[in-house]
Design a protein around this nucleic acid. Structure first.
Length: 429
RNA sequence: GCCGUUGUAGCUUAGCUGGUAGAGCACUCGGCUGUUAACCGAGCGGUCAUCGGUUCAAAUCCGAUCAACGGCGCCA
């Protein structure tokens, strides 16, 4: 048994091969039928000639429906008329299932395809998306393993919010109420006291009623936490990580990127050094670009997009004013009122994909920030304990892997790069 | 949560200022020896989201309801 990608190759010309897969397209006339077959690896045109078959065999072949499953044996020829340049002349075949008409035909609306996502993921386009996504996830972990990090596994069911928000999913938990995690950052901070350099890839859940092109209710969160380093060094690591992922995708998924019409040279730009600027500098730049942004404003989606059309590489934005960030971020001792943190904005209008920075490591400072934020110390007893016993400087980050996928594949909606998106209005399929 | 748009055949849709529903795809049947989500001929398929109102007459105008989609905020 061969895979399709394997036999799209001159070495197989004239040889007898056997493939299995699904009918991608079928066309027939009275004495000739074309069945384009697909498997996970690609598509190939096969041709059935009436003279090659006995009895009803030709008819059975010509009457196959899209997505029927079968096994085909035949000889391979080169043929420019065929979709992928080679053609298999069918000698024999075995049908596993001739199915009813496949629900997805041409001219489908987005919503219909979402309702039928369980079937649509078979499409060539989605197949390419899933392959690139797989590379992105793999490369993320690979990068950190190569740097000596440990992968850790924080809980998804938690008792408190990370950021004190009200956007948590409640889950009954043996008489108590548990929440689905929004971020594993606090747990990662516990791990560094054992392992020093850790990362995790796990889902995060946000019950926010977002309806935008870049929000999911359940999304894949890649987080890292590193002992003994500060904001600058954290950014260096993230920059190397993003470049590593892009390089891997460029190496392993050229074909898929082409199938998606991704402009590869635009992506290659991000292998050059990223821009870095402070929040204050960014606001100034934005004002130069003619944007109505005042100091103290958070960057909205429109602003991010308007700013990012001026850059072709990612930008780290650092030193946000204290009021714009949550309590655990460490204020800059050199710049009172500013935070040692960073957001990474992706180019081509994609905006924020990473949030990270240095964490407060002094117990007193953390307690006062918790108080200021109006939160209860009891809820954070174990987080505070980390500052009681051998506290150290450390930094971390959270990367929205789906957002990274969105940008790398240059799709227009985050739902397009995950097989089964969960949003405020979609729980199925 | 706020703002906006849309709802016509299985799917994609046309239908202007009211006159009683049209197409493409899919499907069924027939034809075709080189097709590229082929082509040609015929057929099947619609309580125009729901409820109510205006009118001689409503897919079309008005109101309500429901559903979906898009944008913002929140963030990754």
């Amino acid at each position: 048994m061969e895979t399709i990608i394997q036999i799209l190759n001159d070495n197989y010309i004239g040889k007898e091969v056997k493939i299995h897969g699904w009918v991608y397209r079928v066309r027939s006339s009275s004495k000739l039928c074309f069945i384009v077959m697909r498997d996970h690896s690609g598509v190939i045109q096969t041709v059935g000639r009436m003279e090659d078959f006995n009895g009803d065999d030709f008819k059975n072949l010509a009457n196959l429906t899209i997505e029927s499953s079968l096994e085909i044996s035949g000889t391979l020829n080169k043929d420019e008329r065929a979709i992928t340049g080679y053609e298999l002349r069918i000698k024999s075949f075995k049908i596993f299932q001739r199915n009813e008409n496949f629900p997805i035909t041409k001219d489908q609306g987005e919503e219909f395809l979402l309702d039928n996502r369980h079937l649509w993921i078979r499409s060539r386009e989605f197949n390419a998306i899933l392959k690139i996504r797989s590379t992105i996830f793999k490369a993320f972990s690979e990068f950190f393993f190569k740097k000596g990090y440990y992968e850790v596994h924080p809980p998804m069911m938690v008792s408190t919010a990370t950021e004190g928000g009200s956007t948590l999913f409640k889950v009954p938990f043996f008489g108590e109420t548990a929440f689905l995690t929004q971020s594993s950052q606090f747990y990662l901070e516990t791990f560094i006291f054992s392992l020093e350099k850790v990362f995790t890839v796990s889902p995060s859940f946000r019950a926010e009623k977002s309806r935008t092109w870049r929000h999911l209710t359940e999304y894949w969160h890649a987080e890292g936490e590193v002992a003994w380093i500060g904001n600058e060094e954290m950014m260096d690591i993230e920059e190397a990580m993003i470049k590593y992922i892009i390089k891997e995708v460029l190496e392993q998924n050229k074909e898929e990127l082409t199938l998606l019409n991704r402009d590869i040279s635009a992506l290659e730009k991000s292998l050059e050094p990223f821009h870095r600027m402070t929040y204050t500098e960014l606001i100034k730049k934005a004002q130069e670009f003619g944007l109505d942004l005042k100091f103290g404003d958070d960057l909205g989606a429109d602003e991010e997009r308007a700013i990012m059309v001026h850059f072709d590489k990612p930008i780290f934005v650092t030193h946000f004013p204290e009021e714009l960030k949550t309590f655990y971020h460490r204020p800059d001792p050199q710049n009172p009122g500013y935070i040692l943190c960073h957001d990474l904005l992706a180019p081509e209008g994609y905006g924020e994909i990473i949030g990270g920075g240095e964490r407060i490591w002094s117990l007193d400072e953390l307690r006062s920030r918790i108080q200021k934020a109006g939160l209860k110390e009891e809820d954070y007893y174990w987080y505070l304990d980390l500052r009681r016993y051998g506290s150290i400087p450390h930094s971390g980050f959270g990367l929205g892997l789906d957002r990274l996928c969105l940008w790398i594949m240059k799709q227009s909606n985050i739902k397009d790069i995950i097989a089964f998106p969960r949003t405020i209005r979609r729980l199925r399929p």
